[in-house]
Design a protein around this nucleic acid. Structure first.
Lengths: 115, 115
DNA sequence: GGCTTACGTTAGCAGACACTAACGTAAGCC
DNA sequence: GGCTTACGTTAGTGTCTGCTAACGTAAGCC
């Protein structure tokens, strides 16, 4: 252990793969402060409802949205808690980097020299 | 503006696409607190140096690592500042969600019912 | 100049993924 | 029961992407 990916990294993996698709991020932003039906979401994009439905399935199984049924409609809402794992990953990067902050100046030079 | 993806989202896009690949996250973790040469990084994986080199190119152009030349060797180090955009994206999700926190209980019920 | 070391780069291939079109299903109305 | 509405699901397709193998290149040694 240590070299291989830890178990809790799997949640990060799923969230990341869900977020990498621009349309899924757009959908997520849409339902972050409003609850919307699948059809209402689909209307705002120029793709078929089928495509949106598939995106919603991915977001749902990644724990990034919740689904609530109301008659024949299915209402979706963002579930920010699903981003917790990814957040920890980023925090880990920052914290660890503080230990090597002294080397950052040279490192920054490196990225500017590169062309 | 508002509905379409904002310009600063492009940095998030690049960082996200770089991070979605598990091997690139592993590489990143490797150089987060140590500076390593490309060959040294490649030795820790069971893929060709070529593959690792391509991953490093992606990470570099995403601003997630810096490159420093030392003779024939090229030393890499993580650059956590490259994660700032993604961090803002996540923060935005959290902050916005606080406005709709009252609805979270019902939303949570939704994800548990689903099966 | 020739050799080795340590890389990046390119061509080509296999698998993953987002999409459309067609079909299946459950709820509500008549 | 039959119809419509509002969805998800499946089959099939074009495109992207991570990989290997082969080649190109720059630095250091003799």
């Amino acid at each position: 252990m240590g070299l291989s990916a830890s178990a809790h990294d799997e949640a990060t993996e799923v969230a990341l793969r869900a977020l990498v698709e621009p349309r899924r991020r757009a959908i997520l932003r849409l339902v972050v402060d409003t609850e919307l039906a699948a059809g209402e979401i689909a209307e705002r994009f120029e793709v078929t409802r089928s495509a949106v439905s598939q995106h919603l399935t991915v977001l749902k199984s990644a724990g990034l949205v919740t689904e609530r049924r109301e008659g024949t409609r299915r209402l979706y809402r963002a579930r920010p808690a699903g981003l917790a794992g990814l957040r920890e990953f980023l925090d880990g990067m920052w914290v660890t980097s503080l230990d090597t902050a002294r080397g950052m100046v040279e490192a920054e030079r490196g990225i500017n020299d590169g062309a």
